[in-house]
Simulated scan of single mutants.
Amino acid sequence: MSNYLDETQRQEIEALEQSFTARTEWPTWLLLIGVYASWIVVILASSWLGLWLSTALLIPIVVLWLSLQHELLHGHPTRFNTLNKVLGYAPLAVWYPYTLYRDSHLLHHRDEDLTIPGLDPESRYLNQQQWAGSSRFERGLHWLNKTIVGRFLLGAPLALWALGWEALQRLRQGQRQAWLMWLTHGTLTLLMLAFIARYSALPVWHYLALVSVPALSVAMIRSYYEHRPHPQPEQRTVINEAGWPWTWLFLNLNLHLVHHDVPKLPWYFLPRVYRARREQWQARSDGFVVQGYGRLIGRHGLKAIDSPRHPFV
């Protein structure tokens, strides 16, 4: 729990953590069962639903799965990391092994390193040396990635390219952990794709290109402007007062400052904690507040929100 919380906030959060809902984690268990069941039902019923309706249903299911994996790696719905790993390891989104996502994301929670290239694994900024060494084409891609449209169209391909390059380097170096992780993930992914090929109307290429990649692109909208460079680390994280369906797809992670200050707080309590001290949270963020993703799309669909160059690194 963050040191920036006052005693009243701490007591309110501790009371929530002792509640029946928090102790049983029934909302997360229900969601976990629902996502798995929904995915299986759509896959098995895809011949009846049709190719494109199945696709339209699967994309939000996979987006929700990505958000649910985030909950699992933060210690929900159980206190046992190994069990959470088993619950979240299914490769419904295909590309990212659960353990890779878990380890890099937990590093991202070092608030003093937020947005810093080379330290924050989720930074979308380049340091001065990286910028000086990039080509005009690469700089253009980085500028496009700072718009919502560019982020939606280019964010996933650029992330997958970086993922593939990093994985290749680790495998070439013979890192045992990387080999075990990718062999496990690859085996499960092949089994899942075989299931899709055998029991659904979706060709494997269709699931890869038109379900998993678009789902990752939608998830990229959440991370588009979660953090900003700021001299004070405690004022680098956004509060996005988004509405439905974004809050559901992203499991309230739009209230990102609350999540960073209380990373163990489950998704279903984030809005309650924020509403209880709304003005206090906004002051805590130094006014780093966005009025929903619609506002971001309207203002920055084709206009970069800031520079790809980190301003003080």
Rank of each mutant, 00 (worst) to 15 (best):
A242L: 05
Q175C: 06
L191N: 07
L158V: 11
A159V: 13
A159G: 14
H185D: 07
Y268Q: 11
E17F: 13
L257M: 14
L191C: 13
P214H: 05
Y199G: 06
I148M: 10
L16D: 10
F195V: 13
S134H: 08
T99C: 13
Y274K: 06
I239T: 02
R23T: 05
G133W: 01
V94I: 15
G75P: 05
L57I: 11
A22H: 10
L193A: 02
S46L: 00
W131G: 04
N127L: 00
W179P: 01
P308Q: 01
L216M: 09
G164W: 06
Y96M: 13
A159W: 08
T99W: 11
A90K: 08
L302T: 04
L31H: 09
K264W: 14
V218F: 03
L249Y: 04
A22M: 12
W205V: 14
L53D: 01
I33M: 13
P97G: 04
F20V: 04
T82V: 15
G301T: 11
R151W: 09
L160P: 00
G140P: 02
L30S: 08
V289T: 08
V238M: 11
A178R: 00
D261I: 01
A304I: 00
S134Y: 05
Q291A: 06
W267C: 07
L158I: 15
R172D: 02
R272I: 11
S135Y: 01
L49M: 04
R278P: 01
H76P: 03
V273T: 02
W131F: 07
R102T: 04
E17G: 07
L193N: 06
V204R: 05
I297E: 10
F195N: 08
L114I: 10
T78K: 08
D6T: 11
H260E: 06
P121A: 09
P271L: 14
Q128M: 09
S285Y: 03
T99A: 12
L183T: 15
Q175P: 00
V149G: 06
W131K: 00
W65S: 07
A283F: 00
